[in-house]
């Protein structure tokens, strides 16, 4: 638990489904250290290609009580990743120093067994390079000393216009991601498989004020501010009658 575990926290309350994280991820990683992420028929009728990150959309509820949920989906860098032990070559591994799950493209034989062993469908084979690919948490930029410190973050995090994506060490209780999970109800996907995903999601949150009826009038009124004042009779002298200026 004391070791570093880098992860993303994705706030579904502010994600607007703009796909900026998808395009920035593809842009960075297709031109990064790991080489290109191949596409087929990018301008054709049925384009397909390798992506590390996707944004899906769900409709929750029935009309008129519906809500749209945009759901970015990438590797969750599980603390107990089921995809790693099944790999016959050791190409899939989890880094001890920061908990990132990576694939060594030079060792991968393209047997796809790791993708079968991931319940989230986070791994995709590159149809041209014939090796398994997945989110690297931009491992080739988060440690890059040539970048300003503020830019040493995954491309998707930097691209998000609503700051729906947070990046940090979920094992450090003081980190921005730990605080977000703790304070905003962060949860893991498919907890039933005990994979312990490091990346968390923050739920949609409603801000509501509950006003009780008795709160509309003052319960106690020590200065009698809203009391009905006694009305003087018509024959009573007025203020002008009893005062002399």
């Amino acid at each position: 638990m004391e070791m570093t575990q880098l992860a993303l926290v994705i706030d579904l309350n502010v994600c607007v489904g703009c796909h900026a994280c998808v395009t920035s991820c593809k842009e960075w990683n297709t031109s990064g250290q790991a080489g290109s992420m191949s596409d087929d028929r990018p301008y054709g009728a049925d384009p397909t290609g390798t992506f590390f990150n996707r944004v899906q959309t769900y409709e929750i509820g029935a009309f008129p009580n519906t809500e749209t949920l945009h759901f970015p989906k990438s590797c969750l860098h599980c603390e107990d990743p089921p995809c790693v032990p099944v790999c016959p070559t050791g190409a899939s591994y989890k880094r001890k120093e920061d908990g990132i799950v990576l694939v060594d493209y030079d060792k991968c034989i393209g047997c796809k067994y790791c993708s079968w062993a991931c319940p989230y469908g986070a791994r995709e084979i590159d149809e041209h390079q014939k090796v398994m690919k997945k989110c690297t948490l931009c491992v080739d930029r988060i440690y890059d000393q040539n970048l300003p410190e503020a830019e040493r973050k995954p491309a998707c995090v930097l691209a998000c216009p609503t700051s729906a994506r947070l990046f940090g060490d979920v094992h450090d209780p003081e980190s921005v991601v730990s605080a977000a999970i703790r304070e905003n109800g962060g949860y893991q996907l498919m907890p039933e498989w005990a994979t312990k995903p490091a990346s968390h999601y923050l739920p949609r949150r409603k801000t509501r004020i509950k006003i009780h009826a008795d709160e509309l009038s003052r319960a106690d009124n020590p200065l009698k501010k809203e009391r009905q004042l006694p009305q003087p009779g018509k024959s009573e002298p007025s203020l002008d009658d009893v005062t002399s200026w």
């Binding site: 796909h19 996707r54 899906q56 769900y58 029935a62 498919m190």
Partner: peptide, 30 residues
Amino acid sequence: STLQSAIGVRHNKIVQQAQGFMGGSFNTRE
């Protein structure tokens, strides 16, 4: 696993509207 546990939303009626692409992917082929 259910769609509820997959995306972490407690509601009986959840319908997918988009999966992030339209031409298929490894996820839909394999």
